[in-house]
């Protein structure tokens, strides 16, 4: 593959991947301190997917993601402070603290979650795309989900409906080879996920999800295809989660060798190498980026720490829209 990126593009990809990695490493520490509770699904290892794909969407486009969405929200542009506050459950969080790790929302960026029922986002994305089509808007809805979602009926119903109605939705399968502890081959008779999409008459591609440039190239093309009114498109990113499914699990379902093998393909490590080889990255660049990110994280944590809890009197606020 030939890389025709500029230095700034390359540094931006690296910066975003590092932002996600460091943000989540900090979140894991805060979890151990009891500052963050509940489920915390880390994206570590999969950063190239969000970083390579999210910038392909314009601010007018919509994003629907899963409970493993920290990276997507960060790249989409929601401030790290409001995301950290959301992890804390503080009132200043991106969902007023009511969602936590699994339910990031940001209306101003058309970020529709943070949805934690596996495959539950696909029908919603199909509907967002339907609304755009009906209103003659050239917007695209990007819908992220895991390989586990492929087993749900909603996956099949949604692909069928989107293709049948030629809707402007881009399906983005983050295939990290496991649905919790169930390996792909243990939950799918046909493990070629792109082939399933093709069966519903969607154009589909499989992409190296450990390479931000490969992700970017494929996603840009796919978004353009959808935006031009050609109907839905399907991308399967082959990637890998380095950490447990949620904060802790015994990892009985995979070998240490397998994890080590994939870690050799760490998207940050390999991309850093790519940039160095191309002469686009100096040691000082990396230091500067790390320093910037460290400051951003410190500020985010300080913001979350200082933020108030939502008053219990507001418990039932926003169950329904207030009557005017």
């Amino acid at each position: 593959m030939t890389y025709s990126m500029t230095r700034e593009q390359g540094l931006q990809l690296l910066r975003h991947m590092l932002r996600i990695r460091r943000f989540e490493e900090r979140a894991a520490e805060l979890y151990q301190l009891g500052k963050i509770r509940g489920f915390l699904h880390l994206y570590i290892g999969e950063e190239a997917v969000a970083v390579g794909s999210i910038p392909s969407f314009t601010s007018e486009d919509a994003i629907v993601a899963t409970y493993r969405e920290h990276g997507h929200a960060l790249v989409r542009g929601t401030s790290m402070g409001t995301l950290m506050a959301e992890l804390y459950g503080k009132a200043t969080g991106c969902a007023s603290g009511r969602g936590g790790s699994m339910h990031f929302f940001d209306a101003s960026r058309r970020f529709y979650g943070g949805l934690a029922i596996v495959a539950g986002g696909l029908p919603v994305a199909v509907g967002l795309a339907l609304a755009d089509k009906l209103q003659g808007r050239a917007r695209v809805t990007g819908c992220y989900f895991g390989d586990g979602a492929v087993a749900e009926g909603e996956f099949h119903e949604s692909l069928n409906l989107a293709a049948l109605w030629k809707l402007p939705v881009l399906f983005l399968c983050e295939n990290n080879l496991y649905a919790m502890g169930t390996a792909l081959a243990r939950h799918q008779s046909q493990t070629d996920i792109a082939a399933k999409a093709k069966a519903y008459a969607l154009p589909a591609e499989t992409v190296d999800g450990m390479d931000p440039l490969a992700v970017e190239t494929a996603t840009r093309h796919a978004v353009e295809f959808v935006r031009n009114g050609n109907g839905p498109y399907f991308l399967e990113y082959r990637t890998y989660r380095f950490r447990a499914h949620s904060m802790y699990d015994a990892e009985l379902y995979r070998t240490k060798d397998e994890v080590a093998e994939w870690k050799r393909r760490d998207p940050i490590m390999t991309f850093e190498q790519t940039l160095r080889t191309a002469g686009l990255l100096a040691d000082t660049d990396l230091q500067n980026i790390e320093t910037e990110i460290a400051t951003e994280i410190e500020d985010a944590v300080a913001f979350a720490e200082a933020s108030p809890w939502e008053p219990v009197e507001q418990l039932t606020k926003d169950v329904c829209t207030p009557k005017t």
Binding site: P123, L128, L130, A131, L161
Partner: peptide, 28 residues
Amino acid sequence: PERIRDTPLSESTFVGAGIGAALGGMRP
């Protein structure tokens, strides 16, 4: 047929699509 839409037997998905269409500014 744009406004009176026959759907497949996909209750979960067409209800979900209604939710999405509503979020997207329609009145399904």
